[in-house]
Amino acid sequence: MPSPFRIGTRGSPLALTQANMVRDALIGAHDWTEDAVEIVTIRTTGDRVQDRALAEIGGKALWTKELDRALLDGEIDCAVHSMKDVETLRPPSVTLAAVLARADVRDRLIGADSIEALRQGARLGTSSPRRAAQLRKLRPDLEIVLFRGNVDTRLAKLAAGEADATLLAAAGLERLGRHDIGVPVPVDVMLPAPAQGAVGVEARSDDRTAVERLAAIDHPETRACVLAERALLAALKADCHSPVGALATLDGAILTLRAELLSEDGQAHVHGQEAGAPRDPKLPEIMARDLLARAPETVRRLFAG
Rank of each mutant, 00 (worst) to 15 (best):
D31N: 11
G197I: 00
H271I: 09
C225R: 10
T209N: 15
D206I: 05
K60D: 15
R139H: 06
A97K: 00
T45Y: 01
A101T: 04
P296T: 03
A231Q: 12
P140T: 09
M83D: 08
L14I: 02
D180Q: 09
D188V: 01
H241L: 14
D280V: 07
R289S: 15
K282V: 11
E75R: 10
A231M: 11
I7Y: 02
G74V: 04
I217L: 14
A216T: 08
A275L: 06
P278M: 10
M21G: 05
W63C: 04
E56K: 04
L257I: 03
L26F: 07
W32E: 15
V40Y: 06
A259W: 00
S93N: 14
P186Y: 11
L302D: 08
R175I: 10
A122G: 05
D113K: 05
D152M: 06
L302G: 10
V183E: 15
H241N: 13
M83W: 00
A169L: 02
P296R: 03
R178D: 13
G276L: 03
A295H: 04
E285L: 14
L191Q: 09
L173A: 03
A304D: 14
T222E: 13
R223V: 07
V201I: 15
V244Q: 06
E229K: 01
L138N: 09
L14N: 04
G252C: 14
P281T: 12
P184D: 05
I76Y: 04
Q18S: 12
G8M: 03
G272W: 03
L247T: 00
K60N: 14
E297A: 15
M21K: 06
G74D: 06
S114D: 11
T45W: 00
I7F: 02
D85L: 07
L191D: 13
V80S: 06
I181C: 13
D77I: 05
H269P: 02
V201N: 13
D164H: 07
G59Q: 03
E229L: 09
E264N: 11
L261D: 12
L67T: 00
V185N: 08
D47Y: 01
G46F: 06
D68K: 04
V40A: 14
A203T: 07
